[in-house]
Amino acid sequence: MNRTELKNKVAERAEVSAADADRAIDAVIGAITDALVDGDKVSLPGFGIFETRSRAARTGRNPQTGEALEIAASTSAAFKPGAELKRKLAKA
């Protein structure tokens, strides 16, 4: 599903215009992004948890040359599905 399809599905389910649905999607994505940037978790009961995970710096290898290289520490976004979502996916 792409953004347009999501926007149309939200508009249909919420019985709002496509423009209102698009603004709502932007607001939700913006709120989740802001929370993650601030280091907070976003918990949506029944759906899941958005959180950040830190990765320590480590030594890797260039697969072409075998040369060792340092991989910098990083932070990435992660999603952990909730129990209800897992149950629905298992039935699918």
Rank of each mutant, 00 (worst) to 15 (best):
E51I: 07
A78K: 10
A72K: 05
R13L: 04
I32Q: 02
E84Q: 13
V28S: 09
A57E: 01
V28N: 08
T33F: 08
A72N: 01
A73C: 01
R58A: 04
F79S: 00
P45M: 06
A18Y: 11
D34Q: 13
N2W: 02
A83F: 09
A92N: 15
K7V: 14
S43I: 11
I25E: 13
A18K: 15
G60R: 05
G60V: 03
D20H: 09
A31S: 04
R23Y: 13
R87I: 08
T33I: 08
A56T: 08
M1V: 07
A57W: 02
A24Q: 01
A92Y: 14
A92G: 15
E67L: 10
R3M: 01
R53N: 00
G39T: 04
K9M: 09
L85K: 00
E51M: 11
G39S: 09
V10E: 15
R61T: 09
L44S: 07
G48Y: 07
K41T: 04
T59D: 07
F47H: 04
V28Q: 09
L89Q: 07
L44M: 07
K80W: 04
A73V: 00
N2H: 02
N8Q: 15
P63C: 03
G46Q: 06
A11F: 03
A68L: 09
A92T: 15
A56S: 12
E84A: 13
D26H: 12
F47K: 05
R61W: 06
E51G: 10
R61C: 06
A72L: 00
P81F: 02
G60T: 01
K9V: 07
R13Q: 06
L6S: 11
G48S: 13
R87T: 15
L44N: 09
L69K: 14
E70W: 13
L36R: 02
K88G: 12
F50H: 00
D20S: 09
A56L: 08
A35V: 00
E15F: 10
F47C: 04
L6E: 10
T75M: 10
A78F: 07
I25K: 10
L36F: 04
D40M: 13
T65A: 08
L36H: 02
L85T: 05
A83K: 15
A31E: 06
E5L: 11
E70N: 15
K9A: 13
K86T: 13
R58E: 02
N62M: 05
A27C: 10
R23Q: 15
G82K: 06
D20E: 12
A27W: 04
I29A: 14
V16T: 14
M1L: 05
R53V: 04
A90P: 08
G39H: 02
A18L: 09
I49W: 07
A11N: 07
G30C: 05
G30T: 02
T33E: 11
G66N: 03
N2I: 11
